[in-house]
């Protein structure tokens, strides 16, 4: 009989063998010429620049940043309402959170763009499409972040609020100066994750019907793909997404391991 140690070693070899077999199969069986023609046409890659950066990436960043900023404020307000001693505040906040957490982001976009115009024909959402994106992403993101922020506030030790109150601070002042700053430290990793999700959700802006100057990455890639009948533009914008999200993921992982060590 093999010792447990030998068995573990053998199992590891099997895993490596499977990995090598899969890689080899893909490498040998795949039609690389065909793949490259379809996915990575150098001429088309060059054609994407510089507009993929100056328009598409820029717009994705703007939409995401505006949506996230609004979502953060909304999330904080909803979280404080959820923790309020005033019943109606709690009920309203719970309703808003459940509504926008439960709806697909696409539905929120449509409701805001089409629905708003039908319901209030005399009014317009300010800043045009950017206003709608900010509202839609903010509502969806804010509903998620509200629960995260609430959990963060509740994770701050009770003694902090008591110490602040014993110094004569009002409840609101103690929240702003003492509790909320500590809550945000605790929830920085999940908030960054939310930022990553919003980066991807910002692609839903296509539903609004944009002019070229408003294209964000996904729309830009799709237009490029359709006009060239080739997938290369999609690959280029995919890399652009990773350019945003991977560094954020690394930051999150750093923060998590640091807070682990601090414990």
């Amino acid at each position: 009989m093999a010792s447990p140690r030998q068995r573990a070693a053998r199992w590891r070899y099997v895993q490596y063998a499977v990995l090598v077999a899969v890689v080899l199969t893909v490498a040998l069986v795949a039609d690389w010429g065909q793949l490259q023609r379809a996915f990575w046409n150098w001429e088309l890659v060059k054609e994407q620049f510089p507009r993929v950066l100056t328009i598409a990436l820029k717009n994705t960043l703007i939409y995401t940043a505006c949506g996230f900023a609004f979502g953060l404020v909304l999330g904080l307000v909803l979280a404080l309402m959820r923790l309020s001693s005033v019943g109606p505040y709690r009920w309203i906040a719970t309703g808003v959170i459940e509504l926008f957490r439960g709806l697909p982001a696409l539905v929120v976009f449509i409701a805001l763009s089409v629905g708003f115009r039908l319901a209030f024909p005399a009014y317009e959402i300010p800043f045009g499409n950017l206003g709608i994106v900010t509202l839609a992403l903010g509502l969806v993101g804010g509903a998620y972040m509200a629960e995260t922020i609430r959990a963060g506030i509740q994770a701050v030790p009770k003694g902090q609020m008591e110490a602040a109150r014993s110094l004569g601070m009002s409840h609101g002042r103690a929240m702003i100066s003492v509790v909320v700053p500590q809550a945000f430290r605790i929830i920085l990793p999940p908030l960054t994750n939310e930022l990553i999700l919003l980066t991807k959700d910002s692609s839903l802006v296509y539903i609004l019907g944009l002019s070229l100057s408003g294209y964000e990455l996904t729309k830009f890639g799709r237009e490029g793909m359709n006009s060239a009948s080739n997938l290369t533009p999609i690959i280029v914008i995919a890399l652009c997404y990773l350019l945003i999200t991977v560094p954020l993921s690394i930051v999150v992982r750093r923060m998590e391991s640091r807070s682990e060590r601090a414990r």
Binding site: P157, G159, Q160, E162, A163, A164, R165, S166, L167, G168, M169, S170, V178, P181, Q182, R185
Partner: peptide
């Protein structure tokens, strides 16, 4: 109450300093 509390210092067993 807030104004009165400002005139009453309080020291806790667990210190409760503001860590940030």
């Amino acid at each position: 109450v807030d104004q009165l509390r400002a005139r009453i210092g309080m020291v806790f067993q667990q210190f409760n300093l503001f860590p940030h």
